[in-house]
Simulated scan of single mutants.
Amino acid sequence: MNAALRQTLSPARRACGSLSVRIAGEACVLRCSGALWLPAFRALVAADLHLEKGSAFAARGQLLPPYDSRATLDRLEAEIMDLDPARVVLLGDSFHDTRAIARMADDDRARLDRLAAGRDWLWLEGNHDRKALTHDAQGAARLPGGVVGDMTLGGLRLTHEPEARTPDDDRHGEVAGHLHPAARVVAYGRGVRRPCFITDGSRLILPAFGAFTGGLSVRDPAITDLFAAEPLIAALGRDKVHAIAWDRLP
């Protein structure tokens, strides 16, 4: 990591294996789960849960184990139990398609209600679930919380899809999902592909939180074109977030 980026990010290891950095001046904790913790706002942020992706594939005849929603909610509940957030923000594509909410098992719907109880719970609209969230808001048994397009917390702007970089605007403070960033890392002579955060200290892209989500290489132009300078990769390990300089990627 170059000296300028290190000074901007001020990376520090936390006891739980997470990585603490500063984005647009705000303290941000990159969690091993792939979630983001904003301690100043007691806000837990996660992107791209893609709930009911397994049942969507099953409806098309591609059989996958029908437990992705349960596994994803298990991980989300573990983060909530550990951090006790006052606010939970889900950065869009929380549901895989328009009919995903209707396909959810009753106990999964009930668990969402329990997790949201007593918290400010916000669903950001994504390209996969915008219609699903709109239709749900018109129903009698609605999901807990509110639905927004994007939102601001301090110096951070939370949104689903990162906006293209322009010469006179570096999207300072943007926190987004959508792209499912992943990096190939080498350990013990073996190459593995891991979900990751990616940031230059000005903007941050979160990995997908869902159990059945794939990943897009951080070297894909859809990601590299968002950054004017070489960013930091924060790859998810089993119990640690690994900070990797761009020039150390294979």
Rank of each mutant, 00 (worst) to 15 (best):
R103K: 11
Y67C: 12
D97S: 06
E77P: 03
S94G: 02
R114V: 15
L124I: 05
G118Q: 06
G118S: 08
A78N: 13
R109Q: 13
L122P: 00
D113G: 14
R111W: 08
S69H: 07
A100E: 03
R109D: 03
L115I: 06
R119N: 03
I80P: 01
R130L: 12
P66N: 08
R70E: 13
N127H: 10
E79S: 07
T98Q: 12
S94P: 02
A78M: 10
T98S: 09
K131Y: 10
A132R: 13
L64S: 06
R109L: 09
D82K: 12
E79H: 04
A86M: 05
I101Q: 09
K131F: 10
R103T: 01
L112M: 14
D108R: 11
R75E: 09
D113H: 15
A117S: 14
P85E: 05
A86W: 06
L76R: 02
E125R: 15
G92N: 02
D84G: 07
L115R: 10
Y67A: 07
A110V: 01
F95N: 01
L115G: 09
D129M: 08
S69K: 09
T72E: 04
D129N: 10
D113V: 15
D120I: 08
A86P: 02
D84Q: 14
R109M: 07
H96D: 04
L122C: 14
E79M: 07
A110H: 12
R130G: 07
G126T: 09
R109I: 03
M81K: 13
H96K: 07
D113R: 15
A71D: 12
I101S: 05
A102S: 11
P85F: 02
M104P: 05
A117W: 08
N127D: 13
P65K: 06
R87I: 00
Y67L: 12
T98M: 10
E125I: 14
L64V: 12
E77I: 06
G92V: 10
R130P: 03
D107K: 05
T98H: 13
L83E: 01
D106Y: 08
L64G: 05
A100Y: 00
D97W: 01
H96L: 00
I101V: 10
R111N: 01
E125G: 09
L76P: 03
S94C: 12
I101E: 11
Y67D: 14
L124Y: 04
A105P: 01
D107R: 11
K131G: 04
P85A: 08
Y67M: 10
W121D: 01
I80T: 09
A132T: 14
D107T: 06
R70K: 05
D129I: 01
L112I: 11
D68K: 01
K131T: 15
Y67I: 07
D120V: 08
V88R: 00
E77K: 14
L73D: 08
N127Q: 06
D97I: 00
A100R: 01
P65R: 05
L124K: 03
W123S: 03
R130F: 13
D107N: 13
A71K: 13
M104K: 09
P66C: 08
R103W: 05
P85Q: 03
D108V: 04
D82A: 15
D93V: 03
L90R: 01
R119E: 02
M104G: 07
